[in-house]
Amino acid sequence: MSSFLQFLFKGISVGSLYALIALGYTMVYGILQFINFAHSDVFMLGAFFSYRLAVKLDWLTPSPIQATALLLMAMAMCAITGFLIERLAYRPLRHAPRLNVLITAIGVSLFIENTGQLIFGKNVIGVRSLPQLPEHVFHIAGIPVRAVEVIAVVTAVALMIGLQALVFGTKIGRGMRAVAIDHNIAGLMGIPVDRIISFTFIIGSALAAAAGLLVALTYGQIKQPADASWVLYGLKAFVAAVIGGIGNLPGAMLGGLLLGLSEQFVAGYLSTTFRDAIAFGLLILILLVRPSGLLGKRVVEKV
């Protein structure tokens, strides 16, 4: 029983991080119908930006306010990065075949990874150099849970609630939903389509930045920018988005959570060898039985 709860908590914490990244994939897919392969690199940059900021500001044992400020600054920096990626690499290809954009996304990804190596170096940044959060251990239902995991879940959930409020409760959110359905018709409504697309990249990248910081803290290290683990993490988040139904926001959250939980339970009860296989196993299963994902849209339409 106690190990069950342990896997459960760990699954929720990892799953909410997948969900944060998955949201960025799913929002861009929803609005442009292409997979932004550079998204996992923005996520990686989130970790490095916050680390470098912490070093620069000498906030290696940050107070709660400083930690929040670090998070917000990293989010802002990644938001700018995401904006620039769209503006410089994707927008000029707006009317090009989708394959061109996809290949460009891979190019952007490689560019960021290699530039990242130049700027941030090729060494692993270990736990001792990272900002230290209080190593407080909570006891939930008698199970010890690390403070950093609680912080990760709380932050991720807060950001997702914020996103939900933005998309479903504001005018710009209504604009995003309209652009996701049809660019031309959205334009006829007076919606500035290009600005909405920029905004989508800004929001998705900011969420990925938060995930980058939280993942670094959770695992206690930052691997070098071109390390395959970043791409693998991003790829799993993408799988989470597909499981939930690509283009669907609650779907990305559900998919992330589901993936985090199944990974932890499989690793806990079967073997850690299968932990990475589970994501892709789930993907195959979903594509076979429910290709539009768990919450994928099935629009009621009469013509």
């Binding site: 005018k171 209504r174 604009g175 939903r177 309209a178 359905i181 049809d182 031309n184 018709i185 959205a186 006829l188 409504m189 007076g190 919606i191 849209k297 629009v299 009621v300 339409e301």
Partner: peptide, 26 residues
Amino acid sequence: AHSPEGRGIFASLTVRDNLELGAYSR
């Protein structure tokens, strides 16, 4: 303002959402 060929309504959004989108420029 342009009411397009095939009506171009946002099928998955509510009637009210559609109307509010029509006023996006205001």
